[in-house]
């Protein structure tokens, strides 16, 4: 259930951006979430739909989620491979000297606000 904690952070950030930009209402919020960031999209949206009612500026805002593919780099053979399919072990050479390049992201990409 850390999705709820994450949603509170998102709402706080979006509310701050709204104040900075002098807008009182937000139409939608787009997040970029890595494939292996540990966030369950459906839970996140459920939490959002509950929590947004507590903050007037995002009360009617839709939450959009864009997924960033998880890619791991192998230091041994210097090739990339998809993390979800192969995990920590490189499918090209079998080495475990690998690290995540993308897929752990947890970003607010943009928010949409009514046009002036």
């Amino acid at each position: 259930m850390h999705e709820l904690g994450v949603v509170f952070y998102v709402i706080k950030d979006v509310a701050n951006v709204a104040v900075e930009n002098k807008v009182s209402t937000v139409n939608s919020v787009t997040l970029e979430i890595g494939e292996v960031s540990g966030i369950v999209h459906d839970y996140l949206i459920d939490c959002w739909n509950w929590a947004r009612k507590k903050e007037p500026c995002v009360e009617n805002a839709e939450l959009k989620i864009e997924t960033i593919d998880a890619v791991t780099f192998c230091e041994n053979c210097e090739k990339n491979y998809p993390t979800v399919a192969y995990g920590k072990i490189c499918p090209h050479c079998g080495s475990d000297k690998t690290y995540l390049v993308t897929g752990n992201e947890f970003m607010i990409k943009e928010i949409a606000v009514p046009e002036d």
Binding site: Y9, D13, F106, I108, E110, I111, P114, E115
Partner: peptide
Amino acid sequence: MNRCDILDVKKTILEDND
């Protein structure tokens, strides 16, 4: 359909906590 402006945020969600 309502037209809208896009505000770029590009901010890591847990940046404030970090």
